[in-house]
Nucleic acid binder design. Sequence first.
DNA 1: GTGGAACTTGACCGCTCGGTTAACTTTGGT
DNA 2: ACCAAAGTTAACCGAGCGGTCAAGTTCCAC
Lengths: 198, 198
Amino acid sequence: MGKESDTRERLIRAAMNLFHARGYNAVGVNEICEAANVKKGSLYHFFAGKRDLALAAIDAQWEFFRDELLEPAFATDLPPLERIRRFFIMTCAYHDSARNENGQIKGCPFGNLAMELSANDEGLRVELEKIFGRIGGYLEKALAEYSPGHDARTGAEQLLAYHQGTVLLAKTHNDQQLIEAMAGSAVELARLTATATT
Amino acid sequence: MGKESDTRERLIRAAMNLFHARGYNAVGVNEICEAANVKKGSLYHFFAGKRDLALAAIDAQWEFFRDELLEPAFATDLPPLERIRRFFIMTCAYHDSARNENGQIKGCPFGNLAMELSANDEGLRVELEKIFGRIGGYLEKALAEYSPGHDARTGAEQLLAYHQGTVLLAKTHNDQQLIEAMAGSAVELARLTATATT
DNA sequence: GTGGAACTTGACCGCTCGGTTAACTTTGGT
DNA sequence: ACCAAAGTTAACCGAGCGGTCAAGTTCCAC
C-alpha cells in the first residue's frame, strides 16, 4: 500500500510553519525535528542542512501561497482591479486566521525571510527574488487585462511594494485590519499607474 | 579634561551598524564587542544584555535617521509633495552609499528589525511601532500642509507602507534604483489620497 | 530467502552563544 | 592622601547550536 514515509514532508511542513512564525535564525533544527516528530539524523538524511531545508520550506510555502491565496484572489470571475482588491482582503483574512501562539500576526512568509536573509545569503536572496517575481506576475496579468498596452510590469512592482509594506506595517502594529483598509487605495494606485501618461 | 569613556557609545554604534547590516539574531555579542574594541564584561557593565543593547541601538539609529534623512528631506524649502519625493530619492542615495561589505543593500534598519523581531519580542515590536509612528508624523505633516482639512493620517500610513515595501523590494533585488524609480508614483499616491472624497 | 539500499535512531561532536564572576585599574570627591 | 564608585579585563560558565556517525531496522527487487 503506497504508504511511503512522509518524514520528509513532515520536516518541510514543520520548517515552513516555524520559519514563518519566528524567522530563520530564531528557530533551531532541534525544534523543527521535535515539531515534525523526527529525529535529527533523519533530517540530515533528507537534507544537506538547515539552509537546504529552508529552501524546500520556501518552495512549499510558495505552493501553499499560490494555491490558497494567489489563484483564488486572481480568479477571473471578477474584473481585474477587483481581483487586486480581493488579493488584499484575502491577505487580511489569512493573517487574521493564522496568528502565532502569542496572538501575533506572522507577516508575509517571503517578505520576512527576504528581510532577514537577503543580506546574509545571496542564494536565498535570489530564490526569494524569484518568488516576488511570480507574485508580481499575477498583478501584472491583471493590470495588463485592465489596461492593455500599458507598462503593466512597473505597475505590478508598485502594487507588490504596496502590498509588502502594508503587511509589514500590519505586523508591526499587530493589526491585520490595516491590510484590508489599504485595499481601496491599492486599487486606486493600480488605476492611477495604468492610466499614467508615461 | 572631559575625556569621559566613550565605551558605551562605541558599543551602541557597533551594535547599530551590525544589526542593520545583518540582523539581530545573526550577530553575536562577541562580534559586537570586537567591532567596538570593547571586552564583553564592559558590555554587561553598561547594558543588561543583548536585547537592552539593541534597544539603545534602535534609539541611536532613530536619531541618525531623523537627522540625516527625515529632517533634510522634509525641510520646508520645497512644497509638501516635493518633500515626499525627496524622501524617496534621499533614501535611494543612502542605500547606495551604505552597502554591506558584500555589496548588498541593507534595507530599512527599522523595517528589518520589525520583521525579524515583532513576532518574538513584544517590547521591541512596540518600540519599532513607535518609530514608524514618528516617521509617519513627518509624512502626515507634509500631507496636511498640502491638503489641509483632509485625513492626512491615513495618507501618511499609506505612504509609509509604500516606502517600506519599496525598500524591501530594493533589498530583495539588491538594486537601490528601484526606490528612486518609485518616488514619482509615491507623489501621485499622495496626491490621490489627499484629494479623495472620503 | 537473501542482499542491498533506504531509512531511522540515539549518542556524540566541536563550537559558539549569551551571560557571569572576581580581581584589577582608573577616576573623582572630600 | 584616601576611599569608594566606576570602569576594565580575562578567565570561565552551562546551554544550545548545527552537524556527524555507526549501528540498527525496514523495505523491496531478485
